[in-house]
Amino acid sequence: ATGDPLAPPAPMAAPAGPGPLTAAALASATPQQRLNMIGERLFPLVELRQPERAPKITGMLLEMDTNELLNLLESSAALDVKVDEALRVLAARPRSGVMGAAAGGAGSRARAERAERRASEAERARRTAEARADRADAVAAALRGEVAAAKQSAALAATAVVVGVRPGLDLLGECCVCLEDRSLRVAFNCGHRVCEVCGDEATGLFNCPVCRASISVRVRLF
């Protein structure tokens, strides 16, 4: 008989879960296969207790030893204890992350403040060194000016030599500077002579007006 065609179809049987683990199955499996076999049986048990966190908690439990995992499959009380421990670990992780981030931020601020202080100290040291260098340059420039003035005075004093005129030397003549007929009583190291007015050091005459030789000696004749 085919039965009543209007009768509702019979419900389908639920698929069977993984069967019980046997010592032979575990012995013949690789470590990864054993872990997969235990995980397939452990996950439904954890899901009954913590549906939302079952994947995370199962992964944490699978880090345990194989014998301990087999004990969790057999003992509901032991599984409850381990699930509670996993929940406490998961609850503590966000707080640790926040505290670590806060500590890291405080450390970064402290390092930044130390770096800023070192930069400020270096800037002050640089400005102090520049000020000292400027003062040293000013002192050196003043000393160079004094030395140059002393050398010039010594040179002028050394060139102002007064000697007597040998007999028969005619001192009268036309000065090659002012073109006046005067007594040419200042002779230079090159041998040319000028009048006393034009030959004075104060006139700023440092080269002979005739041969352009540098004047190193001024001889006053009398």
Rank of each mutant, 00 (worst) to 15 (best):
R49H: 02
Q50D: 06
P51C: 00
P51T: 00
E52C: 05
E52K: 09
E52S: 04
E52N: 10
R53V: 04
R53A: 03
A54G: 00
A54D: 00
P55H: 02
K56P: 02
I57E: 01
M64R: 12
M64N: 02
M64E: 08
D65W: 08
D65A: 06
T66Y: 07
L72V: 02
L72S: 01
L72C: 06
L73E: 03
L73A: 04
S76Q: 09
A77W: 08
A77R: 08
A77P: 00
A78S: 01
A78E: 12
L79I: 09
D80H: 07
D80V: 04
D80Y: 07
D80L: 08
D80I: 01
V81L: 09
V81P: 01
K82Q: 11
D84Y: 11
A86P: 06
L87P: 08
R88C: 06
R88Y: 07
R88Q: 14
R88N: 07
A91E: 14
A91R: 15
A91V: 13
A92N: 06
R93L: 10
P94N: 03
S96F: 13
V98C: 04
V98F: 11
A102F: 06
A102C: 03
G107Q: 10
S108L: 10
A110Q: 10
A110F: 14
A112G: 04
A112Q: 12
A112M: 10
E113H: 09
E113L: 11
E113A: 15
R114W: 11
A115P: 04
A115M: 14
R117A: 12
R117N: 15
E121W: 12
R126P: 00
R126N: 10
R127E: 04
A129Q: 10
E130I: 01
R132N: 09
A133P: 00
R135F: 09
R135A: 15
A136S: 04
V139M: 06
A140D: 02
A141E: 01
A141K: 12
A141W: 03
A142D: 12
A142S: 11
L143Q: 14
R144P: 04
R144E: 09
R144H: 14
G145W: 10
G145C: 07
E146K: 15
A148S: 06
A148F: 03
A148D: 06
A149K: 14
K151E: 05
K151Q: 11
Q152K: 10
Q152R: 11
A154F: 15
A155L: 08
L156H: 12
A158Q: 14
A158D: 09
A160S: 12
V162F: 12
G164A: 15
V165Y: 03
G168Q: 02
G168V: 01
L169S: 11
L171M: 08
L172M: 08
L172R: 13
L172C: 03
L172G: 05
E174R: 13
C175A: 03
C175P: 02
C175M: 04
C176A: 14
V177T: 08
D181E: 11
D181K: 15
D181S: 08
S183F: 07
L184T: 03
L184S: 03
R185E: 05
V186S: 00
